[in-house]
Design a binder for these strands. Structure first.
Lengths: 190, 190
DNA sequence: TATTTTTTGTGACCTATATCACACCTAAAG
DNA sequence: CTTTAGGTGTGATATAGGTCACAAAAAATA
């Protein structure tokens, strides 16, 4: 339990420095939460009061289109942050789902808590700024991959980037992430 | 000229509050720059020392694939920020191009300047954090549109979001942004 | 104005990927 | 164990969209 907070502190310290006093101030703002496989962290229409840092487990954030097809925005692994950021930041009803692919454990941070710790501890504001910048860059890369690569090339790129993930989740979810049908995905590989 | 700085100040003040002293501190970090149509702001391989706030004009940021096709990441209009953020933040060689679709004018902010003003003026750190969060959310929406919509649906969505833009740039650039060939784009519309 | 370059439309044809249908297999649940 | 629900592979066929080719229109430049 305590170890998990240590993990979180180290996560912050990958990008910024924190004094013990600063850490003591921010630590209580993170609330532990656990969910089992197939349980929802966020559902469309709901208010989104938190963002979550994943201690253990695996989740997916996704939208469902009119035809009922699932389209995955993000696979969220250990040490990742996840939420419906549009809903969270702009305090609007959620427009995506987030649920657990495996039993998972997180730290929940509310919007008020985030604003408080960002205000009181400039290093944390910087952490979130840098984190968000990195997230922005990752999404740009994904957009370029959707614009420039074939589904098969995207599959191989993912295989290279997160080899572990492909073993860990059903192929149909990989397909829903890559933007290709399960059948077509099953026809490439090798 | 002075007016442009006023515009920038107002742009910051859409998200955060600034005192006159804070503004006087940050203002000199923004350097005026102008380019004409077809000139490059950033080219692949170059070091990227600045991000830019657009006072006037229109630019595109894009990648070129092996077949020589252009894929547009962003159209950057007045009041938008643009750079190769991966290259800028991680101080790596640029992997995209940014050039002017129209004669343009910007304020350039160096990475050092950004870090200085973020450190000295917490409101500015917050501004960039919020801005980056919003950018992240926009890119997520674009990814979802690429995953869930047909090219024609994406065209109509863009038409609705930025009607003005469609008049302002050649259709082949709209096609390069939507991820569709110019011929196919020319076949929908109405 | 004349001339070159860029943009746009449209036909003919091709290809990646979607969809539907079914069989098999594996893993969880009773 | 046995049963049920997911997960996976593969054929047959349909379709959105790509590619190539050419001509007309519009815009930039001389």
């Amino acid at each position: 339990m305590n170890d998990n907070y240590q993990l979180l502190r180290r996560h912050f310290e990958e990008l910024v420095e924190l004094t013990d006093e600063e850490w003591d101030f921010i630590r209580p703002h993170f609330k532990d939460k656990k969910l089992k496989k197939r349980q929802f962290l966020i559902q469309t229409g709901q208010q989104v009061e938190h963002e979550y840092w994943i201690i253990k487990g695996l989740l997916k954030s996704y939208a469902i289109d009119e035809k009922g097809n699932e389209h995955i925005l993000q696979f969220a692994l250990e040490q990742y942050w996840v939420s419906d950021y549009n809903a969270f930041q702009n305090q609007q009803p959620a427009s995506i789902y987030v649920d657990c692919i495996e039993d998972s454990e997180f730290f929940a941070l509310s919007l008020e808590s985030r604003e408080i710790i960002c205000k009181e501890v400039p290093a944390i504001a910087n952490f979130f700024r840098l984190k968000s910048n990195n997230g922005f860059v990752s999404l740009q890369k994904r957009i370029l991959s959707l614009l420039t690569q074939t589904a098969e090339e995207r599959y191989h790129a993912l295989e290279e980037k997160l080899p572990h993930l492909i073993q860990r989740v059903p192929k149909k979810l990989i397909a829903a992430y890559l933007g290709v049908s399960r059948e077509t995905l099953s026809r490439f590989k090798l």
